[in-house]
């Protein structure tokens, strides 16, 4: 296999808050191979979105600051690129789709103008060719009558159609990596199913890689090849998608899997993870999950575990990995 397309190593991101500088992303490593779909899973505040914004160098500064690590794309470190070169990477090599297509599309311009702007800038196409390209990609994402729709404004599209248009805009320059940040979270389930199917088929056709950020394990099971699980700003587990569900190697992952209401027994309480995730300025000593972990021992309260490989590309950040037996969702 060729080297990874995206390779994040030891990423640290700090934010200035009322409580002073806090680290919201700590030593995060992550890789995506060409054509691969990697899921980045975690609850709100786990650092998954900040990690993805770091790849695009879109972390708001101030208050945020990338304080360490490297992000290699196709061998080049994006963190040391001049802003001018970075602008060529954004939208061209790496594109992004967000949760809220209503806010990521500009309400004052037609869908066609917004797509054309990107392709004129990145591909150097003329006005007419750019509009043709916009029609082509709208057609690609399944928007009916694209020749007419290209002149419509975002508010004239339904939620599902807007998300398709946002995907069309992201794909217009044929990126090699698409970062999708909760792209279906705001959509209804029947429309979510359509958009997931669309992303899957486009990926196969175009051969692009995807970094798929979500909190929804059903979506992960549907689209991802490999998964990184984040908790409290750290990656706690990395695994092939089937391994993650069937043989999780971190107590937090086990807790998430057991918490899925579908797996609950009617009339019995649902499984829970006790407590709440820690705040970034009050991270627990030792393992960050230990206050909520049913397997925690004294060692977990003092020693911070490293991300270690259990074999077969399956990594876990747990001191007791060898001693405990975790169950998956079967």
């Amino acid at each position: 296999m060729a080297g990874p397309l995206l390779d994040i190593e030891g990423l640290n991101v700090d934010f200035l808050t009322d409580q002073g500088w806090v680290t919201v992303v700590r030593d995060v490593s992550l890789s995506v191979a060409p054509g691969e779909t990697v899921g980045l899973v975690g609850e709100s505040g786990s650092g998954k979105t900040i990690t993805s914004l770091s790849v695009m160098r879109l972390v708001p500064d101030p208050p945020g600051r990338i304080t360490g690590g490297s992000i290699r794309f196709d061998g080049r470190d994006l963190l040391t690129l001049p802003e001018r070169a970075m602008r060529q990477v954004r939208g061209n090599d790496i594109a992004m789709v967000f949760q809220e297509s209503m806010t990521s599309l500009n309400p004052a311009f037609t869908i066609g103008d917004q797509i054309a702007e990107a392709v004129r800038h990145h591909l150097g196409l003329g006005r007419r060719a750019a509009v043709d390209r916009a029609v082509e990609v709208l057609d690609l994402v399944g928007i009916p009558a694209p020749r007419d729709r290209v002149d419509h404004y975002p508010h004239e599209f339904s939620g599902g159609m807007r998300q398709r248009a946002a995907i069309a805009m992201a794909l217009a320059c044929e990126p090699r990596l698409l970062i999708a940040d909760e792209p279906t979270t705001a959509l209804d389930v029947t429309v979510q199913a359509q958009v997931l199917e669309l992303l899957r088929s486009l990926q196969q056709r175009l051969g692009m890689a995807m970094l798929f950020i979500t909190h929804n394990l059903g979506v992960v099971a549907d689209v991802c090849d490999r998964v990184s699980v984040m908790y409290a700003g750290q990656v706690v587990e990395v695994a092939d998608v089937v391994d993650l569900f069937e043989a999780p190697a971190h107590p937090y992952t086990e807790g998430l899997l057991r918490s899925m209401p579908q797996l609950g027994v009617r009339g019995e309480p649902l499984a829970t993870i006790p407590g709440n995730p820690p705040l970034p300025w009050a991270m627990p000593e030792g393992c960050r999950f230990h206050p909520r972990c049913p397997y925690a021992t004294d060692a977990c309260r003092s020693g911070a575990p490293a991300l270690t490989e259990r074999g077969g590309g399956h990594f876990s950040r747990c001191l007791r990995l060898a001693e405990i037996e975790l169950t998956g969702a079967v």
């Binding site: 339904s158 939620g159 599902g160 159609m161 209804d188 389930v189 029947t190 429309v191 979510q192 199913a193 359509q194 997931l196 199917e197 929804n216 394990l217 059903g218 979506v219 992960v220 099971a221 549907d222 998608v241 089937v242 569900f245 899997l257 899925m260 579908q262 797996l263 969702a329 079967v330």
Partner: peptide
């Protein structure tokens, strides 16, 4: 059928053409 099942093997086996339209 649109709700993805939280199990990769089963979900991939039951996948089918989603309901069209909105």
């Amino acid at each position: 059928s649109a709700v993805p099942e939280p199990n990769p093997r089963r979900q991939r086996a039951r996948r089918h053409q989603p309901l069209a339209g909105e």
